[in-house]
């Protein structure tokens, strides 16, 4: 059950792309994820569409239902309201952008049903 956010979403965190380039988390672009996954032999980028957002089982949590990949396989995750997802062509987005900005100083859009998020699967699962 989610209680804290991982440290790498904090504004200013240094992220290493697959080609070795270093960027701050707030400077990442959609292409950085796509190009990193292209280099990776194990990981593949999927498009995961937000299909439902429900209240979670603990305070400050939400359950997000995604349709993953071309077959729209249904996957649910429970995360904190302020947990950021990267939306294609838009950037960091969360269910409560105000909390994300307050806690992480990471500027965020509102995550909505219909948004298409960057997600990963293993290439070998295909």
């Amino acid at each position: 059950s989610p209680t804290t956010l991982p440290p790498f979403f904090m504004r200013g965190s240094i992220i290493q792309l697959a080609d070795g380039e270093l960027k701050r988390v707030e400077d990442l672009k959609t292409e950085d994820f796509i190009q990193s996954a292209e280099i990776s032999s194990e990981l593949k980028i999927d498009s995961s569409t937000v299909e439902r957002i429900d209240t979670g089982q603990t305070p400050n949590a939400v359950i997000i239902q995604f349709g993953v990949g071309e077959h729209k396989a249904q996957v649910c995750v429970e995360v904190l309201l302020e947990y950021p997802f990267f939306v294609f062509g838009q950037g960091w987005s969360s269910c409560c952008p105000d909390r994300t900005t307050q806690l992480l100083e990471l500027s965020c859009a509102k995550l909505c049903v219909g948004d298409v998020c960057v997600s990963l699967t293993l290439r070998s699962l295909r």
């Binding site: 965190s13 990442l28 990193s36 980028i45």
Partner: peptide
């Protein structure tokens, strides 16, 4: 300064094999 790999930022959403 810690450096984090890009893939740690992305949720791993793998469909289950059943149904």
């Amino acid at each position: 300064v810690p450096v984090f790999p890009w893939h740690s930022l992305v949720p791993f959403l793998a469909p289950t094999q059943s149904d």
